[in-house]
């Protein structure tokens, strides 16, 4: 279980997260929805310990990770898999080496076993037989899949997705959405997805957290969000820019 309590974070004079509270249920897909640049990625980076809050606490399985030193934090991070926005595959390694990377780093499995797992994970994300290719030879969607394969290589309890479908065509977006849902179903992992895409969100989410001005203004099932009365949420769902409605 992941819980953020009163998390505040500022960059310079700009306060991005403002005493944010959020509880993410286990073994479900939670989508954090918000406008571009509203600090969604910042939340994700706090959860995995890449950023530390100015104030507030972040609990992973009831352990406050803001107080941990790097070694303890690394132990916690081993439960995580993260898919970065541009997949963040290492350019100098083949796709196979990329997927094998966490296994090589954190297990003592024999080479053959690692190879087997890599093949299995790549098959799981629908990319069989690309292990020998370099990341630069893959398309954007394929890179995302490979990144996901790397994220789930250690069978993590928690998988974080940073804008998984941004920059993909609608068909590929849909395929990735399916992949997220299937992966979650197979692994029973807790998934946190950052998105600003309404259609995708309603397709995959068990829960939706609505981020607005540094706070979660509403948390609930897709149904509850759809029926929300909050003006910003209504606007967001209807894809309306403020100016169009608020005109004279």
């Amino acid at each position: 279980m992941i819980r953020l309590a009163g998390v505040t974070k500022s960059f310079g004079s700009q306060r991005v997260l403002n005493a944010l509270d959020l509880e993410i249920p286990s073994e479900e897909i939670t989508v954090i929805l918000g406008r571009s640049g509203s600090g969604k990625s910042v939340i994700l980076k706090h959860i995995i310990g890449l950023m530390t809050p100015d104030s507030g606490k972040i609990y992973i399985n009831d352990k406050d990770i803001t107080r941990l030193n790097e070694r303890e934090l690394n132990e916690v991070r081993k439960q995580f898999g993260m898919l970065f926005q541009d997949a963040a595959l290492f350019d100098s390694m083949t796709v196979g080496e990329n997927v094998a990377f966490p296994l090589v780093e954190h297990t003592r499995l024999p080479k053959k076993e690692i190879q087997r797992i890599v093949e299995e994970k790549l098959r799981q994300v629908g990319l069989p037989g690309v292990a020998e290719k370099m990341p630069s030879e893959l398309s954007g969607g394929m890179r995302k899949r490979a990144g996901l394969a790397r994220a789930i290589a250690l069978d993590p309890k928690i998988i974080l997705f940073d804008e998984p479908i941004t920059g993909l065509d609608p068909i590929m977006s849909d395929a990735i959405d399916d992949l997220i849902v299937n992966t979650q179903r197979q692994t029973r992992a807790t998934c946190v997805v950052i998105s600003h895409d309404i259609a995708s969100t309603f397709k995959i989410a068990h829960n939706i957290a609505m981020l607005y001005e540094g706070q979660i203004i509403e948390f609930g099932s897709p149904e509850a969000i759809r029926n929300s009365s909050h003006p910003f949420i209504r606007q967001f769902i209807k894809r309306e820019a403020p100016g169009w409605n608020a005109g004279p």
Binding site: T107, R108, L109, P110, E113, Q186
Partner: peptide
């Protein structure tokens, strides 16, 4: 042993010690 899509799948993992 774990459940995948309602089926119980048994996996073997080899680790060096």
């Amino acid at each position: 042993r774990r459940e995948v899509d309602g089926q119980i799948v048994e996996e073997e993992r080899v680790e060096l010690e």
